[in-house]
Each structure stands twice: as C-alpha cells, then as structure tokens.
C-alpha cells in the first residue's frame, strides 16, 4: 500500500516536472496556451472532486470561478491590493460563496441539484450585471497589477514566463492536494458516498457533512482558478460567470475521465487545443464542444482517463 502511494506521488510529481521543463521547449504561443490550460485544469480538478469522486453533477461552477475572479479583481481595482493579497482575497471569497451555496444546494440531489446549482449560478451571473457600479458589468475591468514582490525580488505578471510558473505552481498545488485528499480517509468516504450513500449512512457517517465539505473544497479550488485567471490575464468581467464556465469544467472532466486525478489536465489540454485549432477554420468553433459532449455521452462515458486506466490494468504488472 505504502509503495503504491509512493509510486502514485512520484508519477504525479514527474508530470509536474515535465510541465516545468516544457516551458524551455515550447514556442512562445504555446507557452501562453499552456498557461491557460493549467489555470483551467485547476478549475477542472476542483470540479472533479465534486463530480468524479462524490458523484454530484453541478452546473453552477461558474459561480465559484467568478467568485474567485471577482474577489481578486475587485480587491485590486477598488482596494489597490497587490497580486498575492488579491489571490488570497479571491480564494477567500470563493470559500465563503461555497459555504453559503453548500448550505443551500445540498438539500436536494440528482437532477434537482443540477438545476439548483444552475439557477444559483445564473442568479450570480445576473448579479454581476445588476451591480454594475461595482463590477462594471458586461464591460468588465481591465486591471493594472503591481509586480509580485518576494524575497527582495520583483516578478512582473506581464512576463509570460512568470505567468507560466505561477500557473504551474497553482496547478501543482491543486493536483497534489487532490491526490492527497483522495488517498486520505476523507476521500475514501467521498467515494463511498458516490457508490452507495445509503450504506455509507448506515455505517454511521454523516454523509451530508462529507458532501458539504466536498462542495466547499471543490468550489474553493474553482475560485483559485478564477482568481488566477483574473490576475494572470489582468481582466475580470461578467462573462466569467456565464454558463460556459459551468459547462467547460464538466466537459473537461468528462473528457479526461471522471474520478481520475490527471483526467482534468488531459481533458483540458485536449479540449483547449481542439477549440483553438478549430477557431482558425471557423467562427463557430464552439461546435466542437457540442460534438465532444455528444460523443462522450454516447460512446466514451469513462473518458480518456478511464480508457487509459483500463488499458494499463489489463497489462500484466
């Protein structure tokens, strides 16, 4: 068991190291692309904790993403926060929003859960438009950021390699955190909740509480992604709260394989490149998203991750 854990951590750290080395080989454009992919992968990792491991399908993660983005963006714009303080503010506001959302939405499950999360996220989206004296609504806020000051050094966030490494650090944190979480007793119970809630309850676990914390962790990680996106690309606007940011993590997770720790990264990277490449042929590139959703539901319910895992297991050890 311990050896398995070691191997698992070693493998994930190797992936992170590979991503670190990638910045020395990739052309400039793809460095920017991978920066975005890693930020979105954090969102997908957060989503996977709730959907892949706890079995709750949400259509409201845009709300958490936006909470992080606005928490960071508004604190820079209105309060003059530096990047690190703003990142913390973003994560904190996503945490608070997740707490509140958790209290409300977990009273229902199944399809009702899906609709309630969708409706709350929609209300949050409308709120970003309605309170436009603060959020500047549709138009959004373009931020001018101070450099990160650390240990006497100054890192300008406009520098692509600073962006890349900040995104990588956050991604590494989210990935290792999710790995640790799922190997912990807490994570095991989450999976038990997904597989059979009634039995888990019968064994004496307060399943509500487990689902609640899964939602809070998931929402907070999504908020981290939103805050990062806002700070790295110096913009926050109402589109961050739109339905698209709820469907994309669902798609990334489904494509990468639900309940696979590296699934979100794989799903995000593949989808991002598919969209990016198709956008140079047509303005209707979002059709790729639709086609992918259909193909996955019809033929690949386990996603790429599930498929790879099955393939690996079939091989003799």
């Amino acid at each position: 068991m311990r050896q398995a854990a070691f191997r698992s951590y070693a493998f994930h750290i190797a992936v992170i190291a590979a991503l670190f080395l990638l910045q020395y080989v990739l052309p400039a454009y793809h460095i920017g692309t991978f920066t975005r992919i890693m930020v979105y992968a954090v969102l997908a990792i957060g989503y996977n904790i709730l959907f892949g491991y706890t079995g709750l399908m949400s259509l409201g993660h845009a709300m958490f993403f936006a909470a992080g983005a606005y928490g960071a963006g508004l604190s820079v714009y209105w309060l003059g926060f530096g990047p690190i303080a703003a990142l913390l503010a973003g994560v904190a506001s996503a945490f608070v929003v997740s707490l509140l959302a958790g209290i409300v939405v977990l009273r229902v499950s199944g399809v009702a859960f899906l609709i309630v999360t969708l409706m709350l996220a929609q209300a949050a989206f409308l709120a970003t438009l309605y309170f436009n004296t603060i959020t500047l609504g549709d138009q959004g806020i373009v931020l001018s950021l101070r450099p990160i000051e650390m240990a006497g050094l100054s890192f300008a966030l406009s520098d692509p390699s600073v962006k890349y490494n900040v995104a990588l650090a956050a991604f590494a944190f989210a990935l290792l955190f999710s790995l640790w979480l799922l190997r912990s007793p807490f994570g095991r119970i989450l999976i038990a909740v997904r597989e059979n809630e009634a039995r888990t309850k019968l064994l004496g676990y307060n399943t509500f509480l487990y689902r609640f914390w899964a939602l809070v962790i998931s929402g907070t990680l999504s908020g981290l992604s939103g805050a990062l996106y806002c700070l790295l690309f110096a913009y926050v606007g109402a589109s961050f709260a739109s339905l698209q940011y709820s469907t994309l993590p669902l798609l990334y997770t489904l494509l990468g394989g639900t309940g696979v720790t590296l699934g979100p990264l794989a799903g995000t990277a593949i989808m991002y490149y598919l969209i990016d490449i198709s956008s140079s042929f047509t303005s209707s590139y979002m059709i790729i998203v639709g086609a992918a959703l259909l193909v996955i539901t019809l033929w690949f319910p386990e996603g790429i991750g599930g498929w790879v895992r099955r393939f690996l297991r079939r091989k003799p050890a």
């Binding site: 399809v111 209707s284 639709g290």
Partner: peptide, 22 residues
C-alpha cells in the same frame, strides 16, 4: 438516463446554435 440526457442535450445545444452561426 436523466443526468446523461442533460449532458447530451447540452451538446445538442452547442451543435444547433453553432450550426446556425455557421
């Protein structure tokens, strides 16, 4: 299946909308 139908019809949404855009 209720959940898979939601994902599938969401796919349908994008396919229809984007085909019209095209």
């Amino acid at each position: 299946d209720p959940e898979r139908t939601i994902v599938a019809t969401m796919g349908l949404l994008y396919v229809i909308q984007q085909s019209v855009l095209m």
